[in-house]
Nucleic acid binder design. Structure first.
Lengths: 198, 198
DNA sequence: ATAAAAACCGACTGAGTACTCAGTCTAATT
DNA sequence: AATTAGACTGAGTACTCAGTCGGTTTTTAT
């Protein structure tokens, strides 16, 4: 691994664990073995490191979500919603640091002045909501899901799942204990009542 | 207003707008007209100011929520859930700064080492969830709400509403446009299907 | 009126910060 | 062997910050 990559990796770890502001360049230097000067040789400032992480995050996560969304499935749309929730929670577990960064204040603060940051965040969130919307639309086609506004409902499902992730990260509630009820709630929320196939 | 109160008020404003770490004691001093020494005369350090704000928040918000929860209503429990959501959103609007502080990283970080902070946060969140739980239980008594686990469902409703607040604060989505769908979703999620009274 | 106590002041401190820069090292090219 | 260019170094710089301290003003009690 190049030193540049090592710096990015360590920064991802530290920004996620301690936050952007609480991470000193000195720590980054110690953790990677790179001199502080080296860090600024590769990145013109601290903010640029953060943006590089966001770019990486986008390039890592978006394709995976896109790929998942396009997989043909024989399940009903309603079941696909459940699976999408499961997939999202799985992704947050395997990429804990990245999602932790997304749940901090700094990216949104930066987005207010930095259009690139704003664009990346928008792309990421749209992608998240898309997987739920796709499932809902597919469910409306196969009549497992009722006549709800697809995008808005997808946003609501996403908001529920994202809250669970936040609960977990902030040690507020035991999310595993809520998982089943979350799924059932979404089903009740979306299912087609004129269709007694389930 | 005493200088101490002015300091607390300004700190609430600044912590909410700029975050804990990004708020310098110097700003606090400028904003209140109090010398920096005065601030440390009233509070032994920055963290203590934060804790004082949290204590205030608890003493301000909890009684209001408790009072609201205990109001007898002739509405169905399902309607009360809707009203509770409305009440919560109203509270977040009238106390934007306080809720903004609750949505930051610092309180949860502090909670890991400071038991008082931990206790306050727990009390606040329990209180939030309680108003939804009360409505759900009441709805199960009057049969407007189905046989769902009350506490867990309350948590899920809360998670949805709390996400809306976060969306608003981070300028991610227009929450007003989602409000109606949020209410409808909750209704579908909770309503008693064996009861066609609505 | 006087003393004691509480509130307040702001210059100061020292630790920490992001970032710079003059120069070294390494490896490829001529 | 000499040159060059990119990767790297770490001491140094200018600055910010939370917190201190010696002293002054204001309030309260006697």
């Amino acid at each position: 691994m190049t030193k540049k990559d090592a710096i990015l990796q360590a920064a991802t770890f530290l920004f996620a664990r301690k936050g952007y502001k609480d991470t000193a360049m000195g720590e980054l230097s110690k953790m990677t073995g790179a001199a502080e000067g080296t860090i600024f040789y590769h990145f013109k400032n601290k903010q640029e490191i953060f943006l590089a992480i966001l770019r990486n995050l986008k390039d890592d996560i978006l394709p995976e979500f896109e790929r998942y969304r396009k997989v043909e499935s024989e399940k009903t749309g309603l079941d696909m919603v459940e699976e999408s929730i499961s997939f999202y929670l799985y992704m947050t577990k395997t990429r804990e640091n990245l999602f932790s960064i997304l749940h901090q204040r700094y990216p949104y603060e930066l987005a207010e002045t930095n259009p690139e940051c704003r664009d990346i965040l928008e792309a990421i969130y749209n992608c998240f909501v898309d997987i739920f919307e796709s499932a809902i639309i597919s469910g409306q086609r196969d009549e497992s899901i009722g006549d709800v506004p697809a995008r808005k409902s997808a946003l609501i499902v996403f908001s529920m799942v994202d809250s669970m992730v936040r609960f977990r990260m902030n040690n507020l509630y035991d999310v595993d204990a809520l998982y089943n009820e979350l799924i059932e709630s979404c089903r009740r929320m979306l299912e087609n009542r004129n269709n007694n196939q389930s």
